[in-house]
Every structure is written in C-alpha cells, then in structure tokens.
Simulated scan of single mutants.
Amino acid sequence: MSGHNKWANIKHRKGAQDAKRSKVFTKIIRELTIAARDAGGDPDANPRLRAAMDKAKDANMPKDKIETAIKKGTGELEGEELHELLYEGYGPAGIALIISVVTDNKNRSAQEIRHILSKHGGSLAENGAVSWNFERKALIKVPKEEVEDFEEFMMEAIEAGAEDIDENSDPVEITTDPDLMAQVRDTLKEAGYSADEELTYIPKNTVTITGNDAEKLIKLLNVLDDNDDVQDVYGNYDIDDAEFERISESL
C-alpha cells in the first residue's frame, strides 16, 4: 500500500472519531465547490465531483450542504473566491511531498505551509522539484471480502481500463487513468461490487523509512491535516504497516 493511501485510511478512521466535524466538512465543502467550478455540477460528467460527493456522504454530510457547495461552484449561489494550489516540499529524511491546498488567501497559506514544514524537519521546494516523481491517477477501492474470485475480478477490472490492481491491500486498490475512473467504477458496480473512488498522486519511486524518521513524518502529516486549507498530502514514503498503525494510534 502506498504511503498516501495508508495515510488516507488513518485519516478516515480519525475523522470518524473526531469531535470537530466542522473541520472535516469545511474541507469537503471546498472540494465540492472547486470540482463543480472546474467541470460543472453533474457528477456523471464530472468524476472529481462524484468522488467528492462520495466523500461527503461517507462523512454523513447533510444533503443540503452538499447541494449548496455545488451551487456555489457552478455560480448559482454566491460564494467566497477560492484558489486551488499545489505546494511541493520535503519532509523528514528527504521524503518528497505534494500538498494540495484550497484557500481564500494564498499568502496566508504559503506562510503557514512553509512554517509547518520547517518546524517539523522539512522545507518548501520549487515547482517541479518533486512532482516529476508522481503521476496523477484515479484510485478505486473495493472491499476485499467482496472479491471471492480474484481472477474473475481482475479480468473485469482490466477490461474496464484498470492499469494496476493491488490484491494485497484491504480494500483492494485499482489504479487507472483519471479519464477512465467513472468507467472502471461503474463496470465494477454493475458486476455487484462496492466501489469508492478518488483522484490521487502515485509516486514512481518510494523511500522506506522507519523509527524516528517515520514518527517525525507522521507527526508532520497530522499537523498538515489539521490545517484548514490543506486538502490532502501525497508522499513517496513507505512505512511498514504495523509501524505505521502503531505510531498513528499513539499520536
């Protein structure tokens, strides 16, 4: 399982237990608005919006909040001016990071991200310094208990456009081109599988870290996640599953 996906799973559990639901909702609302602004309010024609709506439903966001966020994106309702930014940087042990931000104040966000990184053993980098090591991909997840015949499942996914399938992860993770995300998802759902999707950045090469470096990195990820403007963080780290769980649960 790639570093980012481990962190996404930890975040999901953390979010489900987090009393500060408003922080979670704020990030999802901004994602809904940006997705609708960029490619329209129809989730069937806008894979990114569809993924954001699935995330909103998983977080038990009220339907009226979802609809309002989308209407602000399409211009049907007035909303704040939002800017979508990607910061590149380094974490402890030289781990490459891409930090996705949605903000109403670009200067504030840049200062906060720079401060967080420097305080936790990292630094901001110039555009292109780390992004060359990542590919924009769609990630589709299917509960492992639903996959009774993996060979059959794999053939269905590949025929629909899957590029890679990680049968060792739980849920099973399918990687594909972002343009094929809806096609692969719908094919699997028609075959009777549950399927959640998201857009992500997959590292071409990863760096294994352990011990103190791993603890420092996870602390950094926690602090970044607590920042209202940070939507997501992608990294090229690889940490043993058991160690990742142990450190994350202790924070």
Score class of each variant (00 low, 15 high):
239 I>Y: 04
74 T>L: 09
79 G>D: 12
18 D>S: 10
34 I>Q: 10
47 P>D: 01
184 V>R: 08
113 I>L: 03
58 D>W: 07
71 K>C: 11
183 Q>I: 15
95 I>A: 03
20 K>E: 09
1 M>K: 14
2 S>Y: 15
27 K>S: 11
110 A>D: 03
1 M>S: 08
220 L>F: 05
122 G>A: 09
191 A>E: 11
74 T>E: 08
7 W>A: 10
218 I>Q: 09
92 P>H: 07
184 V>N: 08
106 K>C: 04
228 D>Y: 02
34 I>P: 00
193 Y>N: 06
106 K>E: 13
197 E>K: 10
209 I>W: 10
121 G>H: 10
142 V>N: 01
21 R>W: 11
22 S>T: 12
80 E>F: 01
107 N>D: 11
18 D>T: 03
6 K>G: 00
25 F>V: 12
102 V>Y: 07
204 K>G: 11
249 E>L: 14
190 E>R: 07
24 V>Y: 02
94 G>H: 05
162 A>P: 02
187 T>K: 14
123 S>T: 11
192 G>R: 04
45 A>G: 03
233 V>E: 00
63 K>L: 13
80 E>C: 02
9 N>H: 09
181 M>L: 14
166 D>V: 14
216 K>V: 03
230 V>A: 04
214 A>L: 05
59 A>P: 04
166 D>W: 06
182 A>R: 13
236 N>A: 05
142 V>A: 04
53 M>F: 10
249 E>A: 12
30 R>N: 15
128 G>C: 14
213 D>S: 12
48 R>G: 05
241 D>C: 11
190 E>T: 06
57 K>C: 03
23 K>L: 15
8 A>T: 14
236 N>I: 05
81 E>P: 01
151 E>K: 14
239 I>D: 02
159 E>D: 08
85 L>T: 00
86 L>Q: 01
132 W>P: 00
98 I>A: 15
62 P>A: 14
147 V>G: 03
124 L>I: 07
98 I>G: 10
157 A>H: 11
27 K>R: 12
117 L>V: 03
